[in-house]
Amino acid sequence: MKGTNLGEFEELVLLTIAALLNEAYSVAICDELSNHTGRSVKLGVVHAVLNRLEEKGLVKSELGEATKARGGKRKRFYEVTMLGKTALLNAKSLRDQLWARIPSPAWKKM
């Protein structure tokens, strides 16, 4: 089924949301990603991914309090859903399994 698999960027965004906890809104996610990955992440791309994640039910969002800083516009805060959490854990365990399968002597020779 489409939607159960996470793309690489989707996974990063999802992890960032989880890491930012209560401060996860688009610009913050964008900054965090830029800082950690070292590549310039475009706001538009993050927006599109957030929207897609929400459609898949991996995150949910609600509008926060209005502040002066953003021209009086409210922020939309994101939160990882249970489904999102499962998807992340699945992704991680899949990787761990694969890592475990690499025979270490062969790995070191490379």
Partner: peptide
């Protein structure tokens, strides 16, 4: 439903 936070985001980036 998307307009508010989108313009907000852009505003933040703008500032």
């Amino acid at each position: 439903e998307l307009a508010e936070d989108l313009t907000g985001d852009l505003h933040e980036c703008f500032e």
